[in-house]
Design a protein around this nucleic acid. Structure first.
Lengths: 319, 319
DNA sequence: TGCTATCCATAAAATTATCTTATAAGTAAT
DNA sequence: ATTACTTATAAGATAATTTTATGGATAGCA
């Protein structure tokens, strides 16, 4: 196994055609260089330098080895650059996880902000239910998840990030459509289309029904929000979704919302593992998210954050 | 400056996905590996491994670095192979020097023998007068010279190698052509074409004239033996050349030799620097030459050696 | 020619890097 | 629960590297 220190000393000696200059370049003394080169010659069983007077020349073998050493230390430089790039976030991967609704309606804004700050970081966005994302965290497939806190986990940190308004959606011609305020008790009768188990929405709605001492009449469950919308639109049942997710359908009167007695909010958290070190990109992403949050730390909904981001983007593009 | 030992430990750990296995591969203990990898992580300011349970995984940064490290140590292997090749004479250069006559009439045989034994060694054959070759040795342009010992030099070793018969050549119709034995005294009258100063032949002939208390009547001097032959053939003068160099002209009766009172032999030596280490290829070449020499170390002429070599070549090709 | 500065060589001592020993603590399998 | 296996950590030992000090050789210069 070749000794790299010896090779480095040889390389600089060959490059400078001088032990003394090599020593200066390496910030060590000349005898150290001499000794290392000598050790390399012993290892190789080859003379690498020939001497005439007080100047040294490479032997043919030395010349050959020098060419190899040159490429070698060029490659060393490359490695150092890569490390530097990774440290300076000029290169890397950010592995995120979030729910589909979030991925569609909010992540693009967050990612755009991060991507502007760190254009070289590749983003891997994983989608699934809140509990899926917890498992992805534990499997180390992702580093950060933005999810509703569907269930607690001892190894996972949850930091409140935003509160999303949930709305009851019905078909525009539904008999509930003109109600001014409905209770969960009233809804217990209605066939309801639910997000899948593991979903934060599902957990929240279930809890609210339970608080009203009733259980929902679950017609169907699915993880697909688009599917839910279509079923509700056709009058096959009612459902709860994040307001932002149904904004366009409400504008186009394809769906209607019915005010609840009390507004419903889904708590969205940033989740990451307690004991695992976060990569520089993950840390940078968390910092980006922190800056997005309102200064008084009041949880806000998607709409507010999106507006803030768009304002910020406008400011930076104006300047 | 990245520490290669740390990188090597990291590489083997990543390759085996285990500190313990890496330690076994490296013939050191596990704590040594752990410490080195930790040092590398500190240097990089990056986590390279993540741990889940008792198994370790590479982080994204670790994966990137691993790819670079892999190429790095592949290249290390290449360097080790090159060193091995140079040591084993599977790669290298042999820098020789000799006189033109030798290069033409004898070197091909010697080089063929060497080349068969070491087919990968490139041969650089330098030509010039004996003294030119001495200077080339001192300039480290060549390592070994096969020359007539025209002049001694304190830094150069001379080992007798062969004795070449010199013949007096004249035009076939020259008035000396039918003489049975001529003396240098008789030749002092004749216009003679001499090899250039620095040539071993020139020195020998001069000395022989001097021993007979006369000086040659130098018509012309040149380093070009072909030129000499043509001039002599045209009857412009007489000259001395190595018999082998005029063998074909004698056969074709373009030139004639005249027996001298005493046969003349040119001492040919192997010359190399006293204080300089010889490269493996140069040493191997000297060994080849030693084997060519007759067992009783009697200096022999070119013709004898050539015959011996051809016989040897025949034997090896027959078997 | 002698002086001086410069360069490489060498040896001993000092320092630094690396490794081992010993042990702990956590995890997976029986 | 026990055993076996893996990584983590600290202290001491060993090995590698460097410095200090010095000598010898050479080239430039007065």
């Amino acid at each position: 196994m070749i000794n790299f220190n010896q090779l480095r000393n040889f390389y600089h000696t060959a490059k400078n055609r001088s032990f003394t200059l090599a020593a200066k370049r390496l910030y060590i003394t000349q005898p150290a260089v001499t000794a290392q080169v000598k050790s390399l010659e012993d290892y190789c069983n080859l003379k690498l330098f020939k001497k005439r007077g007080r100047t040294i020349y490479l032997t043919d073998e030395g010349k050959t080895l020098y060419e190899y050493a040159r490429k070698f230390f060029e490659y060393e430089k490359e490695i150092e650059d890569v490390i530097e790039d990774m440290r300076e976030l000029k290169r890397g991967v950010l592995r995120l996880g979030t729910t589909k609704a979030y991925a569609r309606y909010f992540m693009p804004f967050m990612i755009t902000g991060f991507h502007e700050a760190y254009p070289q970081i590749k983003i891997h966005l994983n989608e699934g239910s809140s509990s899926d994302m917890i498992y992805s965290l534990l499997d180390l497939k992702i580093e950060v998840a933005i999810i509703a806190k569907a269930e607690d986990h001892p190894d996972v940190y949850f930091t409140p990030f935003s509160q999303e308004e949930m709305v009851l959606i019905v078909a525009p011609d539904h008999h509930l459509a003109r109600k001014k305020a409905v209770s969960f008790k009233e809804l217990a009768e209605e066939p309801i289309i639910m997000k899948e188990i593991g979903s934060g929405t599902r957990k929240l709605i279930n809890e609210l029904f339970a608080q009203s001492n009733c259980t929902p009449n679950v017609l169907m469950e699915t993880s697909n929000a688009e599917f839910i919308k279509q079923l509700v639109q056709r009058g096959d049942g009612i459902s709860f979704l994040v307001r932002e997710a149904v904004a366009s359908e409400l504008r186009e009167n394809k769906l209607a919302t019915v005010p609840m007695e009390k507004d419903i909010f889904l708590d969205v958290s940033i989740a990451y593992l307690k004991d695992q070190h976060l990569s520089p990109s993950a840390r940078a992403f968390l910092d980006t998210l922190k800056k997005l949050r309102s200064p008084d730390m009041t949880p806000q909904g998607i709409g507010w954050l999106m507006a803030k981001m768009q304002a910020k983007r406008k400011r930076t593009s104006d300047s």
